[in-house]
Simulated assay, not measured.
Amino acid sequence: MLTTKEIMEIIPHRHPFLLVDTVTECEPGQRAVGYKCVTYDEPYFAGHFPGEPVMPGVLQIEACAQVGAVAILSLEKNKGKTAYFGAVNNARFKRKVVPGDKLKMECEIIKSKGPVGIGKVTASVDGETALTAELTFMIG
């Protein structure tokens, strides 16, 4: 298991934009599973939405991308590099993510050639799918 501190040694994100608390599984270059404990004091809840806090879908995608970045940047050849978005495809949101949820994020690298690849991501809460998407990344 990777702690927040160990995750920060792999990816460049920092608070308040580090959206992964732990990574419980990581096969470098292949797949990773991580978690985000969604708390009421997340800064975006002040405006999204007052009286009905919902984690923005774009931040769910970003959180999944960070889990994928842990997988791809754990490869020795990619250490110290950054994974950038190339595209987001087929994103589907299936349920709201709200304070108190423990968001499980899974990323499987399904294609990789040179500095470009595609990750298939799924986010869920208590086994219920919240998000599915395909993310294209570029290593820089």
Rank of each mutant, 00 (worst) to 15 (best):
V97M: 04
C64T: 14
E9C: 08
I10K: 08
I11P: 08
E128Y: 03
L103W: 01
E62W: 07
G34Y: 06
R92L: 05
I72G: 03
E128D: 11
L75E: 15
S74R: 11
C37R: 11
I10V: 14
G34T: 05
E134D: 15
K111E: 15
L75M: 15
D21L: 02
E106L: 01
V54R: 02
T3F: 10
P43L: 13
I139Y: 07
N89H: 06
D126H: 03
A65G: 09
V54Y: 04
K113P: 00
A133G: 07
G119H: 00
K104W: 01
A65N: 09
A123N: 07
N78S: 07
P115G: 12
P53E: 11
A63H: 10
R31F: 12
P50K: 15
P43S: 09
H48S: 12
I118S: 09
A87T: 01
L2A: 09
I72A: 07
I10C: 08
G119E: 01
D101N: 14
R92W: 01
L131G: 00
G127Y: 04
V88G: 09
V98I: 14
S74D: 06
A69C: 02
T129M: 11
A65Q: 09
V33S: 01
A130D: 13
V58I: 13
A123Y: 04
Q60S: 00
A69D: 00
A123L: 07
G140I: 11
P50S: 02
L59S: 13
F49V: 12
F45H: 05
V97I: 15
F49Y: 15
T4R: 12
Y44S: 10
M138D: 07
K96H: 11
I118V: 15
Y84M: 07
Q66E: 08
F93D: 12
K111V: 08
H13V: 02
A46F: 12
G114H: 10
A87M: 06
A91Q: 10
G140F: 06
V20G: 08
N90A: 12
Y44N: 10
A32V: 09
E76K: 13
M8Q: 15
